[in-house]
């Protein structure tokens, strides 16, 4: 049993290795046959032809961080739904009510976020 179980995953690994080999191989080939002429201004970061202003390692809008946090909350929530959905037909009304309670709690948090303006991106 355990061998059959694992062997159904083996082709995925094979595919992964092949994809990695393709990507690495293509880069290698292009490195071998490609043009190479070093030039200091060619290696400056692109800023529409102007000399680059400062470094890109600088603070950026905190909004992005907020979205990342919200994403983790909501995506974990969505993942929790998946096993529930798979066996939903056997759960009958009780399954629906329990999940409904769960959704209501989450929606309360969602409405709070909305009213607080955490989802608002307009300047």
């Amino acid at each position: 049993m355990s061998q059959g179980f694992l062997s159904s995953y083996a082709p995925i690994l094979l595919h992964l290795v092949l994809a990695a080999a393709l990507a690495a191989g293509l880069i290698l080939v292009s490195w071998l046959v490609g043009e190479r002429k070093a030039n200091p201004s060619k290696h400056t970061p692109y800023e529409c032809g102007m000399p680059p202003v400062g470094d890109a390692r600088e603070p950026f809008a905190v909004k992005f961080y907020l979205v990342a946090m919200l994403f983790i909350l909501f995506d974990v929530e969505a993942i929790f739904f998946i096993p529930w959905a798979v066996i939903y037909r056997d759960l009958k009304m009780a399954g629906f009510l329990e999940m409904f309670l769960y959704i209501v709690i989450l929606l309360a948090g969602y409405v709070y976020l909305w009213k607080k303006g955490a989802l608002d991106w307009s300047p």
């Binding site: 293509l26 880069i27 292009s30 490195w31 490609g34 060619k42 290696h43 970061p45």
Partner: peptide, 12 residues
């Protein structure tokens, strides 16, 4: 064409 192009890496 893309294979023959130069592979540039920015300095920083």
């Amino acid at each position: 064409k893309l294979l023959l192009k130069e592979d540039i890496m920015p300095a920083g």
